[in-house]
Design a protein around this nucleic acid. Structure first.
Lengths: 195, 195
DNA sequence: TGCCTTCCTGGCAGTTAATGCCAAGTAGGC
DNA sequence: GCCTACTTGGCATTAACTGCCAGGAAGGCA
């Protein structure tokens, strides 16, 4: 059994992560080098790259797990529920499963104020966005005219993520004082309510 | 007058661009090095970096000009026009001002299949998005209840770009056989038409 | 306890993108 | 024909990665 290895690996990952996030917050992402993180975390540069494939993964590495959770949650919503409501439910679950709010806020700020990081983050997200499309498509086709369900599903997923992104940016801008789910609802309402 | 300089610069830029895009198409983006492009274009590596700040700019470098055009076009739409229609008009203008379709298709495919390129592209797009928000906000406030116009404007802009992105990806996937503007309209309809 | 397999770790060298610096060249004004 | 402005290319350097190899620790087995 590799239990000990796994456990010490977890500890190491957490220690590196804490060091990295602290340094990023102190001196900015671009100004912090891998060498410095490795030194302060007491690990070799080479091993750091084995834990985290890239520097960006230090910030947005665990997005994959959240993407998986989102997909599963949306799938498990009752069959009658609309695609929009199912996605909204999934978003809610991911929110509660995420980092503690303080840390999430710190990470969000870092991502939003570092253009290259933000772009990478969105790019990663786009990958699991694609996996969500078939799940959403399964909830369409009820309406009378349902032209090009694939196009429809992609557009819906893309829009939901655009709103999540916008809401998160506003949330970080307000230092987390406004409820994130409320902001998301406002964004979606601005888009879907015809004026 | 720096006319001669400007002109020879234009020529040089085009020659480098052609070389780069050809090599990217032949052997892929990651597999092509700056050294190779410089060598085949008959220019020093140092100068190449002066023409194009980064390797990514060889592919999505002229996006800035399009962003400017988009913003100006949206601004100049008649005052009564809704934000959605103004953005749609801007999109249309950008489409016609873009590369010839064949080249645009090649570039789009390259961007969508190369993660680092796509990230860079997103990063650039996020910048115009931010600049468009005040322009769009100026077209709101007409409705009866207009809560948080900033949130509203951001959500609208983000959604429009999400639909542009989705439409472009579908367009590239269909080898440009389906009209891009039509795809965009379908995406937006899927989002805004309550079912 | 001693050996062996397996996996992890660190160091070293090398690649690639990107930046700063400085010397050499070239266009245009006087 | 000189002087200034601007460009170009070569050199050195940095930072993110990657491949390779030697050394070491964990766990199984006699």
């Amino acid at each position: 059994m590799t239990t000990l290895w796994e456990r010490s690996r977890q500890v190491a990952v957490q220690a590196i992560l804490d060091t990295a996030v602290r340094l990023f917050a102190e001196q900015g992402y671009e100004q912090t080098t891998i060498a410095q993180i490795a030194r302060e975390a007491g690990i070799s540069q080479r091993s750091l790259f084995r834990y985290f494939g890239t520097k960006e993964d230090l910030v947005c590495g665990d997005q994959e797990a959240l993407g998986e959770l989102l997909k599963r949650t949306v799938e498990q919503q009752p069959a009658g529920m609309s695609a929009w409501d199912a996605l909204r439910a999934g978003f809610e679950v991911v929110l509660t499963a995420n980092h503690p709010p303080e840390r999430a806020l710190e990470l969000s700020r870092l991502i939003f104020e570092t253009p290259s990081l933000r772009a990478r983050y969105i790019e990663k997200r786009l990958r699991w966005q694609a996996e969500l499309v078939p799940v959403v498509r399964a909830r369409l086709g009820n309406g009378p005219g349902h032209p090009a369900p694939d196009t429809q599903a992609r557009a819906i997923v893309a829009t939901v993520f655009a709103c999540i992104d916008t809401a998160t940016e506003l949330w970080a801008g307000h230092d987390g004082r406004i409820d994130l789910a409320d902001l998301y609802d406002q964004c979606l309402a601005a888009v879907r309510n015809h004026g």
